[in-house]
């Protein structure tokens, strides 16, 4: 297993290099002058010249590429045009907000989607089964940003149950440490802040988690249905085992591999969805920052942000692959 992990980690290196190359090429090979694009049509020649020099755009492409790789290896993603702060610091500051949102969204998706899928599969063709599959089908056809807008309209504007935007109410006594607000507030035993933070989290997390929830429910159902038809399930019942034991211990465990796969794949969808959800809920995470950077034509941020998202995505996929062995001992890695 350890050998396999090392092998997989080594195999990541060329992929990550490739990702870095593509991001570099997107910015540098496309016709047009990045400095001009960044500063707009009306920029003066001096300003353009200054920016080109600052970004090293006057050097030949291979020189630029070499410098980019060298900087990248040192964790240096350049400086933001907007703030002049290092890109890595800007990204690191905002990532916890995205992580927190994604975590609660995937928790919601898993905790609702898997039980719903199991329940639908053991009551195949019941009204619950049909309804949940209809919701799942709508879920895969729905734009996440529309769902977010509808949530804001219904639960924030009309009913007033939840705040429509941001991570925490104004005027609350709270000092972030790790920027993972939930953890910070627990560490500080600041329960009034914790309540407020969770209150702010509900709408965006549920909006972001709904579509993955629908897909996970659909996959759980079809994977369970497949296992429930197998001979060993009949044997388990014949042995006189309780229904609960058969379903959770025998069936679910065997149905888990495709479910984990889809949960992992959904994490990637979630990262993309975070861009939209954060924009709608004014959530100060990486996704919203990336969109703001695009509007501001802050290319170092765009470049670094996409690279960062891709890196997280690749690592999550690896973790998903490795987790198969935990749920299914038949899977052995060489």
């Amino acid at each position: 297993m350890i050998n396999y992990i090392i092998k997989r980690l080594l195999a990541l290196i060329p992929i990550l290099i490739g990702v870095a190359v593509i991001v570099f090429l997107i910015v540098h090979l496309i016709p047009g002058d990045p400095a001009q694009t960044m500063l707009g049509e009306r920029a003066t020649d001096e300003a353009l010249q200054r920016l080109r020099e600052q970004m090293g755009l006057n050097d030949p492409l291979p020189v630029q590429f070499w410098r980019y790789v060298k900087d990248l290896l040192r964790g240096d993603l350049g400086r933001s045009i907007m703030s002049n702060n290092p890109v890595s610091a800007e990204l690191a500051q905002r990532f916890p907000a995205t992580l927190e949102l994604s975590f609660f969204a995937i928790m919601f998706a898993v905790l609702v989607g898997i039980p719903a899928g199991i329940f639908a599969s053991i009551n195949q063709n019941s009204w619950f089964d049909n309804l949940s599959m209809l919701i799942a089908l709508m879920g895969v056809s729905m734009p996440i940003f529309w769902l977010g807008l509808m949530f804001i309209w219904l639960f924030a504007v009309e009913l007033g149950w939840f705040p429509p935007s941001s991570r925490i109410g104004v005027g609350l006594d709270f000092t972030p440490i790790t920027n993972l607000y939930v953890i910070d507030s627990i560490l500080q035993l600041n329960f009034s802040a914790l309540k407020d933070i969770l209150h702010h989290l509900v709408l965006p997390a549920v909006a972001l988690g709904t579509i993955p929830m629908a897909i996970i429910a659909r996959m759980t159902r079809s994977s369970m249905l497949e296992v429930l038809r197998k001979d060993f399930i009949r044997t388990a019942y014949a042995k006189g085992l309780k229904r609960k034991v058969v379903i959770f211990k025998h069936a679910l465990k065997n149905a888990m591999v495709p479910i984990i796969t889809v949960v992992g794949l959904q994490f990637g969808v979630l990262l993309g969805g975070a861009v939209m959800t954060e924009t709608i809920f004014s959530w100060p995470g990486l996704g919203k920052y990336l969109v703001d950077a695009i509007y501001a034509r802050d290319f170092p941020i765009v470049q670094g942000g996409i690279l960062f998202f891709a890196g997280v995505f690749v690592i999550v996929n690896l973790i998903v692959d490795l987790s198969y062995a935990l749920v299914d001992p038949r899977i052995q890695y060489e």
Partner: peptide
């Protein structure tokens, strides 16, 4: 494989951000 290493909508956002 490398292209699939990007969450797809993010790659699209990146391409459009640069192309205009």
């Amino acid at each position: 494989d490398i292209m699939l290493a990007f969450p797809s909508i993010l790659l699209a956002i990146g391409i459009v951000a640069i192309l205009g």
